[in-house]
Design a protein around this nucleic acid. Structure first.
Length: 518
RNA sequence: GGCUGGGUAGCUCAGCUGGUUAGAGCACGGCACUCAUAAUGCCGGGGUCGGCGGUUCAAGUCCGCCCCCAGCUACCA
């Protein structure tokens, strides 16, 4: 644990409430949840934050369309994200909303700091504006037609040159300092390919950033100039320090800042890796330690889009396949950071192959012998042979390995090493054949079963962050008390003679409903 | 166009600073076992490592050129 601070602060992005939760939201928060759970079990003082981003023009319009006040609208829509926390069994310490009063206070305090530092000035925002698209376009996104009128290339809508007053953040002055920051903090952006992208973007030069709007009003007012509201991203990013009490650094939660990890989708990496550290450094606040940009899911090989109608609903997935299988699949199937394809066939393959056959069946075959032939008590541990020690050593080494993998957010590799030991254990059962030893050497059989149960204990302890419910059931069957489910008890071996409850399957096989019916 | 990453068995991928017959999982075929969720274990088939040329005693691993794929190339969030 050398070099680790005892606190661990992990955040999801705050989700924009103009949308219902989809697989992308579920995935991001899941990754954070596994880290938060792991770190808690590992004895760290964890703070895990998620929440909703409730400001902006889209929300204002959506609320108007629904004939609701913006606040009433966001109250309603943000609920679906709080519901997802229950559905997916996430364990956040708080759910923040940007409409909270304390968040306005924090955002305005940050703004004041930026003004005081001389990094914000009043200027004019100018660009090619399309009334039809309600959006600005840069010159390159427009073209002049044969009729000599300029249009947005994407939509074909006519654009006009519009200027409006806007406050600007002096981002152009931060390029060198950002590059220097990336250089000195090589872990700040992951994975590596994203880091390259960000660095090359910053090297290309930065323009000042428009950080206020006057065209709508649903947002945090700019201090001292009520005609303006803060740019939604400046407001949104601030949530991470709002939570810690900013600007009150005497707040007990301030100990969590700087965050250990901002987990984000690859689409919002720039806001987190360029704008956010620049804002913070300008305001004299330490930037976060790390931003991890994960990939996106496709659906059976197809890009997901509302217009295609192939949006993946996490609630439906959980209802169909069960919560823990879905949690397992999402983190096991794809090298974390890469894009992934959600194929039902692959999910069922993981569920039946990895969970039911390999892991679940291992637990079942071991525990049922114990229940039927050893009176339902932890077997008597006798002399440990070389093969026993080999398996036990591999299981013992898992904590160090998994910890190292999760420090890199390599969820898939953490799961791979766990399943390697599960496979070793299945091989060991066959090689030792405890059912045969029953007749020839009962004492040896007991030792074999103890080794197996002990291996299952260690694997399951480490499976807890990924599949909390299922792991708990297995640990129940091993009669592990709650206080011994933390990693401090990782080396506290099973005590022979302890009474065990009747075993029952934890990961049932998934059978296609059509086949099950026939 | 520029920059970055990648092209290795049917599929998904691992192969660090060049060195014995190129690996894993899944899928497929055969065998064994029967404790277990028709689960498990063992054996096997299958790859000119994108293409061409070069460096080297030796290249999937280095160099050059070419082909293909993906991402990035700023202010809706």
């Amino acid at each position: 644990m050398s070099g680790r601070s005892s606190t661990y602060y992990v955040t999801t992005p705050i989700y924009y409430v103009n949308d219902v939760p989809h697989i992308g939201h579920a995935y991001t928060t899941l990754a954070c949840d596994v880290l938060a759970r792991f770190m808690r079990l590992d004895g760290r003082d964890v703070h895990f934050l998620t929440g909703t981003d409730e400001h902006g023009q889209k929300v204002e319009k959506a609320a108007a369309a629904a004939r609701l006040a913006p606040q009433a609208f966001t109250d309603k829509v943000s609920q679906s994200f709080r519901d997802l926390v229950e559905t997916m069994n996430y364990s956040p310490d708080n759910f923040i909303r940007t409409t909270e009063q304390r968040h306005h206070v924090a955002s305005q305090a940050l703004w004041d700091k930026l003004v005081a530092a001389g990094d914000i000035y009043l200027g004019k925002y100018a660009g090619w504006y399309s009334v039809r698209d309600e959006a600005y376009f840069v010159e390159g996104e427009t073209e002049v037609g044969p009729d000599n009128k300029r249009r947005a290339t994407a939509s074909g809508a006519e654009v006009e040159w519009v200027e409006e007053p806007s406050y600007f953040f002096r981002l152009s002055a931060w390029a060198e300092r950002l590059l220097d920051f990336y250089e000195r903090n090589p872990r700040f952006i992951a994975p590596e390919s994203r880091r390259n992208e960000v660095i090359s973007f910053v090297k290309g030069g930065l323009q000042d950033l428009s950080v206020s709007r006057t065209s709508f009003s649903w947002g945090v007012p700019v201090p001292g100039d009520a005609k303006h509201i803060m740019y939604v991203w400046l407001d949104a990013l601030t949530n991470y320090i709002t939570e810690c009490g900013y600007p009150d650094t005497a707040n007990p939660l301030w100990k969590y800042w700087p965050a250990d990890l901002h987990m984000v989708g690859k689409d919002i990496i720039r806001f987190h890796c360029v704008f956010w550290p620049a804002f913070l450094m300008a305001a004299g606040v330490a930037p976060p330690k790390r931003v991890f940009a994960h990939g996106w899911w496709t659906n059976e090989g197809q890009k997901i889009s509302k217009s295609l109608g192939n949006v993946i609903d996490p609630v439906e997935l959980v209802r169909t396949y069960g919560l823990d299988p879905v949690r397992y699949f999402l983190l096991r199937e794809v090298p974390f950071g890469n894009d992934g394809d959600l194929q039902r066939r692959a999910l069922v393959g993981r569920l039946n192959g990895d969970l039911a056959n390999a892991y679940g069946n291992l637990c079942q075959r071991v525990l049922s012998i114990v229940a039927k032939n050893l009176g339902g008590k932890v077997p008597l541990k006798g002399a440990i042979t070389e093969v026993d020690a080999a398996l036990l050593d591999r299981a013992r080494s898992l904590l160090t390995t998994v910890r190292a993998e999760l420090d890199e957010q390599a969820f898939h590799r953490a799961l791979i090493v766990l399943w390697e030991v599960i496979a070793d254990a299945n091989r060991y059962v066959d090689a030792q054949a405890p059912w045969a030893l029953a007749k020839t050497d009962p004492a040896r059989r007991d030792t074999v079963l103890w080794v197996l149960a002990e291996t299952v204990r260690r694997v399951t302890l480490l499976a807890q962050p990924f599949m909390p419910g299922s792991a708990a059931k297995i640990l129940d069957q091993l009669a592990i008390p709650g206080e011994d489910r933390v990693f401090a008890s990782f080396d506290k071996e099973l005590v022979s003679g302890t009474a065990l409850p009747a075993p029952q399957g934890v990961f049932p096989r998934y059978v296609e409903p059509a086949k099950a019916a026939s």
